[in-house]
């Protein structure tokens, strides 16, 4: 191999980066809806773990990754519902209830795995689907159009989320509820309902992100398979300034750095691997530090909604 990196490795790094962006995109887009409605859910990581296990287990039992996806979506919805119940209905401190949800998801998924599976077991996960014609384009085809269905879903969700947020009535309600819930309330928009819906959607997308790890990437389950991706996803929401395109940018930035560092290790590229390993995190921290601004945050973020008690 001449020089630093050959073109083949470059393509592999890019394609892997696109694939690795998937869980971040799914989880962060879900969290974006949650935060846009004025709640922050720190339990994303726990939901991802549950989704990862549920997807894995259903696939293992029935041999159908599609069923795995459906089951994990259902589990995610349920986890979102729990978060909504605690933080919206009971108005618990959101940071604490989120951490609680994270630990709950971690503990339960680990427990279930030990109870019903036990050791390393591999499954037949999702297969890459090469998109006809498009995947034949040199370079781009390999990088973008030869992935499994969850990768495509995640990337399609970017423009879709934008449309939902900015063009639909539901999106308008979400933006209103997250910025000035009192105003939405006086106009008959139910703050509670919107926040429930967002938490459920956010939960489903987080679980899907988890399922991607088991049935779309590793084809197995291991304890702590999410490895902090749920927390990174939350950081990416801030980095992306609560916009789908910003989140796309952040996810790609992080996953490309991640892909690069794993290639450095696997292929023995001439680059100090100690540096490479910290690269994704460095990139995130630096990007957060220079981009973070409270100005873009939904104004009611983190504040439980209560109607005034006295006028």
């Amino acid at each position: 191999m001449e020089g630093f990196m050959s073109i083949d490795i470059f393509i592999i790094i890019l394609a892997t980066g696109v694939r690795l962006a998937t869980p971040f995109l799914l989880a962060a887009l879900g969290e974006m809806f949650v935060q846009r409605s004025g709640v922050y859910n720190l339990g994303v990581e726990g939901i991802m773990m549950m989704g990862a296990f549920a997807g894995f287990f259903a696939t293992l039992q029935q041999g159908s990754p599609l069923l795995g996806i459906i089951v994990s979506l259902a589990i995610g919805a349920l986890m979102g519902l729990i978060m909504a119940f605690v933080s919206v209905t009971f108005k618990a401190e959101q940071g604490i209830s989120g951490i609680g949800l994270y630990m709950f998801g971690w503990g339960l998924s680990g427990l279930l795995f030990r109870l019903y599976v036990g050791g390393v077991t591999s499954i037949d996960g999702l297969k890459p689907i090469a998109i006809p014609m498009l995947s034949d384009i040199p370079l781009i085809g390999q990088v973008l159009f030869n992935h499994n269905v969850l990768v495509y879903t995640a990337f399609l969700l970017v423009p879709l989320s934008g449309i939902v947020l900015y063009k639909t009535s539901w999106g308008l309600n979400i933006r209103a509820v997250g910025n000035k819930p009192e105003a939405a309330d006086t106009l008959g928009v139910s703050v509670v309902k919107i926040r429930y819906q967002c938490l459920i959607v956010g939960g489903m997308l987080a679980a899907l992100a988890g399922a991607f790890l088991t049935i779309g990437q590793a084809n197995m389950y291991a304890d702590n398979i999410t490895a902090g991706r749920g927390f990174i996803a939350i950081a990416l929401v801030y980095f992306g300034r609560w916009s789908p395109w910003g989140i796309l940018l952040g996810s790609l930035l992080f996953s490309m750095a991640d892909s690069f560092q794993s290639m450095v290790q696997v292929l023995g590229i001439n680059f100090p691997y100690e540096l490479a390993v910290i690269l994704p995190y460095m990139v995130t921290i630096i990007a957060l530090a220079i981009s973070y601004g409270r100005v873009w945050a939904p104004a009611a973020l983190g504040k439980p909604f209560e109607r005034g008690t006295r006028g």
Binding site: L172, R175, A176, N179, K180, E182, A183, A184, L187
Partner: peptide, 17 residues
């Protein structure tokens, strides 16, 4: 009771659409 980050029009139709 207005949402500052929305436009006049969006504020007016909020909850109606």
């Amino acid at each position: 009771m207005l949402v500052p980050t929305l436009t006049v029009c969006e504020n007016v139709i909020l909850g109606l659409s």
